[in-house]
Write a protein that binds this DNA or RNA. Structure first.
Lengths: 123, 123
DNA sequence: GATACGCTAAACCACATGGTTTAGTAATTC
DNA sequence: GAATTACTAAACCATGTGGTTTAGCGTATC
């Protein structure tokens, strides 16, 4: 993962795979935050939170600006757009599956309306 | 990460953070594939590929059906929809940034048109 | 200049991950 | 029933991850 050849998507998805880091991104959506502000909501040590921020930086999801003794972070959403782009390829699949579910439910409903059930709906 | 309390998003994003697994999903987009078929394109051992499939299963991105001695996998896109949902919150940020980039480019262009550049564009 | 503040660095730990190899199981084919 | 096929399980290894604590460094404040 630390491999230099690792793709941007690797870093992005890895960064997003941790709830602490996702929470930090949410926080950053409200505006620029210092490392201290980002760390505050969590019970873990300051150093641990700081490491999480570095993971976000490595994924280019956060940009840091040093101002005096505090480091100000802001959200950099471009990699999220890339991740979204990757996901969008599969959009038709989840639509399709939702459609299938809908069809099953419709069939179920019409079965009930007729007072007949052809067969059990598989779990 | 193996924590039972880990959220579905944790598993989904973690599964997507590896290029081998992303490639497997692409392959599954063309239809049901056996473990052997999924493993074939990779230089790694069969066992290693099989483990990757298990990670995808844990994330519920793949469902397995045993038929005789071969295990057939199919794509289960629902978690991708969830990931997409999470990402969509940030859509306005990357649009905003793309808009900003566009604005910069426009300004650059109009500057060129006038034969003047107010200041250097920061890298 | 001493002290407090905000943060990073480094050493350390337990455990997860991604890979290997070898062995084992169950289904198929000869 | 022996051999082959498709796969999992288990043991092992190196490295990564997420956390800790302690130390250090630059900036602000007194």
């Amino acid at each position: 993962m630390n491999d230099l050849r690792a793709s941007a998507l690797d870093h992005t998805f890895h960064a997003l795979a941790d709830p602490t880091r996702r929470a930090m991104l949410r926080r950053l959506a409200t505006g620029e935050q210092s490392i201290g502000e980002l760390a505050a909501p969590f019970t873990m040590s300051f150093a641990a939170a700081s490491k999480h921020v570095r993971v976000l930086e490595r994924a280019r999801l956060v940009r840091r600006r040093v101002e005096g003794r505090s480091h100000l972070c802001r959200l950099e959403a471009a990699p999220l757009a890339a991740a979204n782009g990757w996901l969008s390829f599969y959009e038709r699949f989840w639509n399709q599956q939702l459609d299938a579910l809908e069809a099953v439910l419709r069939e179920e409903d019409s079965g009930k309306a007729l007072g007949t059930t052809k067969k059990g709906v598989r779990k």
